[in-house]
Structure formats: structure tokens, C-alpha cells
């Protein structure tokens, strides 16, 4: 266990020092979602939200509703973004050296995904402050369910980030996964429009994104004061998704390495 933790910590520190120099990260984590949020907010304002089919959205709490959506998305995105780091490591040849070492591969993947956790928490904090400043009166929060949801969402986000990271190790050509999984994530996870309003086909797509569940749960505990009992379904699904993702990750890690050792593609970039 100690080597695992050492490697995890070392990987986090390294990625942090190596990649978070760049201010561009903050642009994509924070500025874009925020601009998006503003435009969405004003385009929604035109309509009469009060009559919407979703019980907990009112004209009053709409802004918070949207903020929560963007907050969750930023959080997920920041963990996924670290997967890009591996493409740099492939080019610089350091990925090969990681594979040359006996280090636990999962520790490196986890460290890499979590390296952006500081940034993510920072982003969440800013969003939360915004929420509080703007509409403290619409919040109906029970502490315990809120904390539970926070932990499950974090676990899901980390698992999702690691999962994409592991796929990214397969080959340099897995960039396309980002275009497949990143953009639709925003559209189909209910960041703006609640998934309950989706047509059936879109609902079907939305269920593959862990973010969908995360956003829904966060909104429930923050806007309607759901109790632990009321969010039990989410808790089960969230933990289930996390477990399944981790199982997939451990399979992929093994596959990736034997694939690399056969094709020698680790040095190709």
C-alpha cells in the first residue's frame, strides 16, 4: 500500500508542477463554463420558467439551478482534462519510462486524474460562492445528504477521469474519445435543460454519462432539501457506476500494457 500512495502523491505533484503553469487551464475550466452559463441564463430568462414541468425549478431559483449544472460539469471536465497530459508524456518519452518502472499503473492514472482536484475544488468553491451571493434564500440544504452527495459525485468524477485516462493510453489516436464524450456530455447530461424534459432517445444517451446523475443529485439536495432517504436511489447508482468504472479501469490497464508490449506503440506519437 505504501508504494501505491507514494506513487500517487508523486504523480500528483509532478503533474501539478509540470502542467498547471499554464493559465489556459483556468480558461477552459472556468471562463468558458461561466460565459456559457451567462448566455444560457439570459436566453432562459425570456421564457416563463414558472410554468415548467419540473417541480423544483422556479423563476426564483433558475439561476442557481444553472450554476449547479455548470459547477458539476466543470468538476468533471477538470478531471478528464488531465488525460491530455498523457499525450504530452507520450511525446516526451516519459510515458515509456513510467512503463519501464515497476510502479503500480493505477496509482499513476489516479494521481494524474486527481492532480487537477485542487483546481476543481477551487472552481467549485467559486461557483458555490456565486450561488450563495446570488440567491441564498432559495437554498434548502440538509447538511448530511449534501456531504454524501459531494463524496459520491467526487468518486464518480475521479473514476470517470481515470477511465478516460486509461482509454487514452491505448493509442495516440484515442483523441477522438474526447470529441465523442466531451461535447455531448454537456448537451446530454442536463447541464442546461433537465433530462426529464428530453425526448426518449436523448434520455437514452444521457444515462451513459455519470454527470447526468451527479447534476440531478446535487440539484435535489441543494434546491429541494432532499433527505438521505430521498437520494438513496442516486447513492446506489452513483456507487454502482463508480464500482463498474473501476472494474473497467483495472481491465483496461492490463490490456493497454500487453497491447503496448506487443505493438511497441508506446514510442509512437
Amino acid at each position: 500500500m505504501r508504494p501505491f500512495i507514494k506513487a500517487l502523491a508523486a504523480e500528483m505533484i509532478k503533474q501539478h508542477k509540470n502542467y498547471f503553469h499554464s493559465k489556459m487551464i483556468y480558461v477552459s475550466l472556468f471562463v468558458w463554463p461561466f460565459l456559457n452559463f451567462i448566455t444560457t441564463y439570459y436566453s432562459f430568462k425570456v421564457f416563463d420558467i414558472g410554468k415548467s414541468k419540473i417541480a423544483y425549478i422556479t423563476a426564483e431559483n433558475m439561476v442557481v439551478y444553472l450554476l449547479l449544472g455548470y459547477m458539476c460539469m466543470s468538476f468533471f471536465r477538470s478531471l478528464v482534462q488531465s488525460a491530455w497530459n498523457f499525450s504530452f508524456e507520450r511525446i516526451s518519452g516519459t510515458l515509456e519510462l513510467i512503463y519501464l518502472s515497476p510502479v503500480n499503473r493505477a496509482a499513476v492514472l489516479l494521481g494524474n486524474a486527481v492532480s487537477s482536484l485542487f483546481e476543481s475544488v477551487f472552481v467549485m468553491l467559486i461557483f458555490s460562492l456565486l450561488v450563495i451571493v446570488m440567491k441564498v434564500e432559495v437554498l434548502i440544504i440538509k447538511i448530511l445528504p449534501c456531504i454524501t452527495v459531494f463524496f459520491i459525485v467526487t468518486a464518480m468524477a475521479v473514476a470517470w477521469g481515470m477511465f478516460l485516462n486509461s482509454l487514452f493510453l491505448f493509442s495516440r489516436d484515442s483523441d477522438f474519445l474526447f470529441t465523442i464524450l466531451e461535447e455531448p456530455m454537456e448537451i446530454f447530461s442536463g447541464v442546461k435543460v433537465p433530462t426529464a424534459l428530453f425526448p426518449l432517445w436523448a434520455k437514452a444517451i444521457s444515462i451513459i454519462f455519470p454527470l447526468t446523475y451527479a447534476i440531478e443529485a446535487v440539484r435535489r439536495v441543494v434546491l429541494t432539501g432532499s433527505s438521505l432517504y430521498e437520494i438513496r436511489e442516486f447513492a446506489v447508482i452513483g456507487i454502482g457506476i463508480t464500482v463498474v468504472l473501476f472494474a473497467l479501469i483495472s481491465v483496461i490497464i492490463k490490456r493497454v500494457e500487453s497491447h503496448m508490449r506487443i505493438t511497441g506503440n508506446i514510442t509512437l506519437f
Binding site: 507514494k6 502523491a9 508523486a10 508542477k17 513510467i98 510502479v103
Partner: peptide, 12 residues
């Protein structure tokens, strides 16, 4: 130093 430290960590 940081480079060597990192590799030292992953070699435990």
C-alpha cells in the same frame, strides 16, 4: 532535483 525525486518515488 524534482525529476530525480519523481523517478525515485515511482521506483519506491
Amino acid at each position: 532535483y524534482e525529476n530525480l525525486w519523481y523517478y525515485g518515488q515511482i521506483y519506491n
